[in-house]
Amino acid sequence: MKPARQDIEIILEQYPRHPQHLINLLQDVQAEYSYISAEHLTLICDHVGVPVTQAWSVATFYKSFSLEPRGEHEIKVCLGTTCHLKGGQRLVEACERNLGVARGQTTDDLKFTLDTVKCVGACALAPVVMVDEDYLGEANMVILKKRLEQV
């Protein structure tokens, strides 16, 4: 079980009311709720004092923000340089076939979101896949499937 979600107010109160905290707040809300809802975006804007349009352009510019709900578990296949050379591309495609979604998408049951990242700093064990906060080194579809059965 995941712990209950922190109240949006509590997250907001951790930061002074200044535009410099916009991105930090977006990240905390993203981490807590797995996406940034329109309602939360407005609350953040009111807190740090930036126009909604600016926050919207920031939230869409950076890859780590999602404006739509994401799956319960996140699978991130590394496509950094080393992982690319060691077959990361084939691995994402295999994931796409197995989960029935394209990269960036979430399965219908909201269980998994498939994504790619560019290097998670474990290049020595390429190709690497992250399942939520866990790293899988020297990954292949067999290892990954086993791991996904455990979540």
Partner: peptide
């Protein structure tokens, strides 16, 4: 301050923009 997943944000003027909330 955390970066938010953009390669170009390693460039110094982009970091400044990002720190300013832009």
């Amino acid at each position: 301050n955390r970066g938010a997943g953009a390669y170009v944000c390693g460039e110094e003027t982009a970091i400044i923009a990002s720190l300013e909330g832009r």
